[in-house]
Computed example of a mutant assay.
Amino acid sequence: MSGRADSDTPAAISPAPMSSTDGTEVAAHGARGAREAPEDHGWVEDGRPEGVSVARRTRWTAAGTGVLLTAAGLAASLLRLTDAAPGRVPAAYAAGAVVCACAAALGQRGRTRRALWLLVAGVMMMALGDQPG
């Protein structure tokens, strides 16, 4: 099953046509195969709905942020390892980097909310692990 709706919707439950400002009727979902103008109904210039490009940008943002924070955490872990810091500090940075790497993988797969929370958790692990005391 592809999850697509049946194309033969009975007339009793199909959406009613909407009226436009000039008095003509417009179908609720548009004609099959018809392209709408980019400025009209949230379509971008390449013919895809606007939500598709927003979802792609969100995935790339989550993945890119995860990779960036992973690299920063690993670099900080290596720098603190060469310092005279206690052993828990580089371990906290490394553990936070691992969590951020998991967030990058989730973000690339489209699980952006979970990726956001993992990024927050990873950065908190790094920040709290470097606290004195």
Rank of each mutant, 00 (worst) to 15 (best):
T82H: 15
A104P: 00
A63T: 09
A55I: 01
P90Q: 01
E45N: 05
A91D: 02
A104K: 00
G30V: 08
W117D: 08
G73F: 01
P90E: 03
C102R: 10
P90K: 01
V54H: 14
P86T: 05
V98E: 00
A103L: 05
P86H: 08
T65N: 12
L116T: 11
T82W: 15
L69E: 04
G42W: 02
R111G: 07
S53Q: 12
P49Q: 07
T65H: 07
T112P: 04
D22G: 07
V52C: 04
A31R: 14
H41G: 05
A92K: 03
L69H: 04
R32W: 15
L118D: 00
R48D: 09
T58I: 09
V67D: 00
A94E: 02
A72G: 13
G66V: 00
G64P: 10
G107W: 00
L81W: 07
C102W: 09
V99T: 13
R59M: 12
R59P: 08
R57Q: 15
E50V: 11
D46P: 05
R48W: 03
A105W: 01
R109M: 03
D22N: 10
A85N: 08
L79R: 13
W117R: 09
G110W: 02
T61K: 05
S77K: 02
A75V: 11
T24G: 05
V89C: 06
G42V: 07
P86N: 09
A101M: 10
G23P: 02
E25W: 06
A97N: 02
A27Q: 14
L81F: 05
G122T: 04
A94R: 04
P49S: 13
L81V: 05
A37T: 11
G96M: 06
C102N: 10
V26D: 02
T112L: 08
V120F: 06
V120R: 04
A84K: 12
L118N: 00
W43Y: 15
L74A: 11
E36P: 08
A27K: 14
V26A: 07
R32S: 15
L68S: 14
G64K: 10
A84N: 13
V52N: 07
R48T: 12
A104D: 00
A85P: 01
P86Q: 05
G107C: 01
V123Y: 05
W43C: 08
W60G: 10
R80L: 15
P49E: 14
S77R: 02
G73Q: 00
G122K: 02
D22A: 11
G122V: 03
L68P: 07
A62W: 03
P90M: 01
G42N: 03
A121H: 12
Y93P: 01
V54S: 11
S77L: 02
